[in-house]
Amino acid sequence: MSKVKYYYDSETLSYRKIERKKRRTFKFIGLFILAAGLFGFLTMFITSQYIESPKEKALKRELANMQLQYQLLNKKMDEAQLVLEDVANRDNNIYRLYFETNPIPDEQRRAGFGGVNRYKNLEGFDNSKLIIESNKRIDMLQKQIVVQSKSLDEIAKLAEEKEKLLAAIPAIQPVSNEDLTRMASGYGYRTDPFTKVRKFHYGMDFTAPRGTPVYASGDGVVIRADSQSSGYGNHIRIDHGFGYISLYAHLYKYNVKKNQKVKRGDLIGFVGNTGRSEAAHLHYEIFKDDERINPLNFYYGNLSAEEFDELLKHATLENQSLD
């Protein structure tokens, strides 16, 4: 049972009973409910702004981890870019320079992608910029790797060709120094032994006894081994590829036949005195792109510096040739 409350009336100098009006009671109840609702709303608002739920905390951790992973990915791409740039620099300034081929321009290595927007499907997210930039960098790295890979394939092919070229060039003296009597005559103007007229001598004459071994000066294929060329007598011609042909004339006999493959240093024949020849010797010529050139420039394969100087001294004397 509720207590009855009184108040003191100063006018009547007596206590009066407090009469509670129902309307006023409802008003207080309404105000209380409104205040409670407002307090609850403010509490929820403040909580949502400053106090994270477990799900929000998990999402925030996931987002922070994703951003960290993207940063690590970009760091790895920076490192990959540096390595790729170093390979490209070696490619242009060492490998391509050595094999005498044109470098790849930076514009070609770093060319972008034209046409439609390749990254439209990545737009509209909170971290779209980060995702798009990372994808662009990956795509650029992939393209540069493809360009570099094709370049290295080309370099490998050039290296293989270079190796074949180095083996094919007629780079050794066709008669061993131990077997030589003397170096009779070199490339240039000489006195003809038969007409005594000064004329151009297109090869080198190596004087040696009949039957002295003659060696192939480079890898190649025998294209002739006959006596059907005027003045050369029994002679051999070897096609070395790359425009090089070597000729060995006045032979006593052959040790090879037409279409036979030979290696540098293989025994191909023997010194003789056939054809237009005054004495037993080997007449040796080199052709490059159908032009006869000085064989003296190619003896780097089996002569020491001293032996080459001695050969040069005799080869440059304007004396009488033997053919």
Rank of each mutant, 00 (worst) to 15 (best):
F194S: 03
Y232L: 14
G265I: 10
K162T: 05
R90V: 09
E306D: 11
E161Y: 02
V147E: 06
S128V: 09
F99K: 02
K129P: 04
V147N: 02
H283N: 03
L158C: 04
V83W: 07
G40M: 10
A111Q: 12
A171S: 15
E107Q: 11
Y299E: 02
Q148C: 05
Q260I: 08
N117Y: 08
E161H: 05
E307T: 05
N294Y: 08
M183R: 07
R90G: 00
N127K: 09
E11F: 08
G265C: 10
S48I: 08
V146S: 13
N102A: 13
E62T: 13
E11I: 13
Y70K: 11
G265H: 07
Y50L: 08
A208F: 00
I268T: 01
M140T: 10
N319E: 06
G112Q: 07
P105I: 05
A58K: 14
N117E: 12
S277Q: 01
G218K: 00
A156F: 13
I286W: 02
E318L: 04
F308C: 05
N297M: 11
Y98L: 12
D239R: 05
K261L: 07
Y284C: 00
N234S: 03
A64Y: 00
R90E: 10
S185Q: 10
K313A: 10
P174F: 00
F41Q: 05
F308W: 06
Y248F: 15
A279S: 11
I236E: 03
P193C: 07
N273C: 11
S185L: 12
T43Y: 11
G114I: 08
N177L: 14
N297L: 14
E52N: 12
E85W: 05
F287S: 13
I132Q: 04
V256A: 04
K17F: 04
Y50G: 00
G37A: 11
P193I: 07
F99C: 02
N177E: 10
A80G: 01
L296M: 15
E163G: 04
L247Y: 03
F125I: 06
E161Q: 13
K196D: 12
M77D: 07
A159W: 06
F206R: 04
D219K: 00
I145T: 15
I245V: 15
Q320V: 07
